[in-house]
């Protein structure tokens, strides 16, 4: 089964996944019309800045067992049987924020959502784009990512590729480095900048 895989070291912090995600979870599902919607659709992937201002696309890991599901007071959080996606039923959610204290990644937000009940804030998080996937598309954040920080593939395939890349980069006369040179350079620059400011 394909899933969204995050390659944190590749993220350049461009945040393009965020509007793509918001658009995918809007009523009209087009960027231009989505920004005019009320309530405004909001992203469910959150690019945060790390210690060296490097980007990191933070999204729901769909944990098993899921702490948010165990702590949910109303049973609004459940696991989608087919895709193993952890979902929130907005009509059962009472916006109590119990899941906020359970999620070890801090990926749940609370606001009125275009796809939820009108006029009421609810807990909102990544749903693995189940609606898009059902239509044969890939998740919006992956489609928007230009640097390969988000991919949609079998977990085993991604693991094998990464293992091979690491092995090659360690061998003499190595081929491709694990990180593309441009991405590596950007990260080095960001780290030095933060070190300089500190010093």
């Amino acid at each position: 089964m394909k899933e969204v895989i995050v390659h944190p070291k590749r993220c350049v912090g461009c945040m393009q996944c965020m509007p793509a995600c918001a658009t995918a979870h809007s009523r009209t599902r087009h960027l231009v019309s989505a920004v005019l919607e009320t309530p405004q659709p909001k992203p469910r992937v959150h690019v945060g800045a790390g210690r060296f201002n490097e980007g990191f696309p933070n999204r729901c890991r769909h944990c098993d067992p899921a702490p948010c599901q165990l702590t949910c007071l109303t049973g609004a959080i459940y696991r989608h049987a087919g895709t193993q996606t952890v979902m929130i039923d907005p009509d059962r959610c009472i916006n109590c924020a119990s899941c906020a204290m359970a999620c070890p990644y801090g990926v749940i937000r609370f606001h009125e959502d275009p796809l939820g009940p009108p006029g009421r804030a609810v807990a909102v998080k990544c749903d693995n784009c189940v609606a898009r996937v059902a239509e044969g598309q890939i998740p919006a954040c992956v489609e928007a990512c230009k640097v390969g920080a988000l991919t949609y593939e079998e977990r085993d395939t991604a693991m094998k590729r990464q293992t091979l890349a690491v092995a090659r980069s360690m061998s003499s006369g190595a081929g491709e480095p694990v990180l593309p040179p441009g991405v590596g350079l950007l990260r080095t620059m960001k780290e030095s900048q933060v070190q300089l400011l500190k010093g």
Partner: peptide, 17 residues
């Protein structure tokens, strides 16, 4: 991480990486 970073409004999971 410093406590000020832990308390900052932009604190997020990436800060722990």
């Amino acid at each position: 991480l410093s406590t000020s970073r832990l308390m900052a409004p932009d604190f997020n999971f990436a800060c722990l990486l």
